[in-house]
Nucleic acid binder design. Structure first.
Lengths: 197, 197
DNA sequence: TTTTTAATGTACCGATCGGTATGATTGATG
DNA sequence: CATCAATCATACCGATCGGTACATTAAAAA
């Protein structure tokens, strides 16, 4: 009961392409021509597969969260000293922000910058805010757990520490976007992790 | 030899209004209708006074640099201990990023995010890059001077420290844009200044 | 007062925006 | 093979984009 012509493109690959266009140009700056050209499909195909520009953006953002933003958190686990694990996590994120064959900086950080404009759809702002709080909560929970394990002094605030490192990574994202080299940013990790006491 | 009708609006006030629109919506997201409505003038008046959208943006950015970004650097001077002066500077910038009757975050930081898109004019990208390096150099020079005055250990790198605090402020800018409160961000200053040894 | 110069308001320009109607093409289903 | 549902390519929609032509208005210069 479900006949018809088969889709000639991979939805996942098209989503990856669209995500990179949004990553580079932002939601407003990415035109449908930019998007469909990069995706290698026509406008009707995009509309039939993803709905509209807003829904395409939401799906692309979710794809980024799953594929790029979430995996580094696994690097926080392990038997090494806490500073070493945090440094490993920070370096991984920074390297991702500086990757030469991707747009520079953090996709989510760029969305935050753009989310204040009225042209930015509400559903997009919601998922961006959700992604932002997810990252901060993940770090905060991590420090809370480490604190109860005795790896972090009881006097320090896990919330503050989580917020501090999220701020640090938003900062490196902006500097990466501005053209600073990966080495210049990786060198800051040693300074940042000294906040853990 | 210079007759003619007088301009009925203040160029400075119009520039301030335009700057706030760019600050909120970005270069691409701010339409001429948005801009001229906020400036309280018509399109021909804007074109005659500022040239075009690109030149208006460049002048608005320069206005932000002179009026908002530069003054806080003066807070680095004084007889107090270096950590205290740096903390004072950081708190001033963060307060500015969280001011309730202005767009949240740092105008320059938002421009950096947008500057990768092709719709962002080259002259605008140049002044943004220039502003970015100015801030980083100002901090680096500050730490170098403090180092030669003996207020900073000889082993630490002034460049790294300058870059670190610029990253920190870009980070708080992003968090402010994302809705974090001024108090939440000010609380991070105590952590950050401990990088000074 | 007359002349000249510039700013203003309106109405408009071609180009591009996000989004769609339509018909040809494809291929699984009966 | 014939049917039918879904995708494809093209061409187009109204709205908005940045930018301007033109006539009017105001004020300085003569």
């Amino acid at each position: 009961m479900a006949g018809g012509r088969q889709r000639e493109f991979s939805q996942q690959k098209a989503l990856e392409s669209a995500m990179q266009v949004f990553w580079k140009k932002g939601f407003v700056g990415a035109s449908l021509t930019d998007l469909t050209t990069s995706m290698g499909i026509n406008k009707p195909s995009m509309y039939s597969a993803f709905g509209n520009k807003e829904q395409l953006f939401v799906k692309a953002t979710q794809y980024y969260i799953d594929r790029y933003a979430s995996p580094p958190f696994d690097l926080l686990s392990g038997d090494e000293p806490i500073k070493q694990r945090v440094a490993r996590y920070l370096r991984s994120v920074i390297s991702s922000q500086c990757h030469s064959d991707k747009p520079k900086g953090c996709y989510i950080s760029l969305c935050v910058a753009e989310s204040e404009g009225e042209q930015f759809p509400e559903s997009a702002a919601e998922i961006v805010e959700q992604a932002n709080h997810f990252g901060e909560n993940a770090l905060t929970d991590f420090f809370r757990t480490e604190q109860s394990s005795g790896n972090l002094a009881a006097g320090t605030s896990a919330e503050k520490l989580g917020r501090y490192f999220i701020a640090f990574l938003h900062g490196t994202s902006s500097l990466a976007r501005g053209g600073r080299s990966e080495d210049e940013l990786l060198a800051l990790v040693n300074i940042a992790v000294e906040a853990i006491v």
